[in-house]
Amino acid sequence: MDDLYRAEILEHYRHPHNFGSLDHPDVVQEGSNPLCGDRLTLMLDIDEQGRVDEVAFTGRGCAISQASASMLTDLIRGKQLSEVAKIGRKDIVDELGIEISPARLKCALLSVDTLRRALEDRVTWQAETEEEPA
């Protein structure tokens, strides 16, 4: 029953990393998944060198979407935007490390899709295949 919900994912869900708000974020982006009612607000501080100085998120949703946001914020904290630009949908699915059914893929990708919209003015995202990762 629980291969989708391996311990690390449940741990991120119970105790999400970077959960909360920033006082004066440089970027705020909301994302939602109308199918599930998952909601995510992503906040970023970006320093003068173009580095993700601070990152936080709030929101509610399923274990997959919350764990995904927790892991993604860990992944980008302290990174240069040029590095962040290389993060794609496949990376977050790999990070989750589980087989995700098509119906649940939107939950897994909400965080990275929200990040991409958050930075669309600042970053030229590396091309991503049209195909959604399996």
């Binding site: 629980d2 919900y5 998952d38 509610r60 399923c62 997959i64 649940r104």
Partner: peptide, 8 residues
């Protein structure tokens, strides 16, 4: 979340 309930 109910989606997790339904998946399980």
């Amino acid at each position: 979340h109910p989606h997790d309930v339904a998946t399980l």
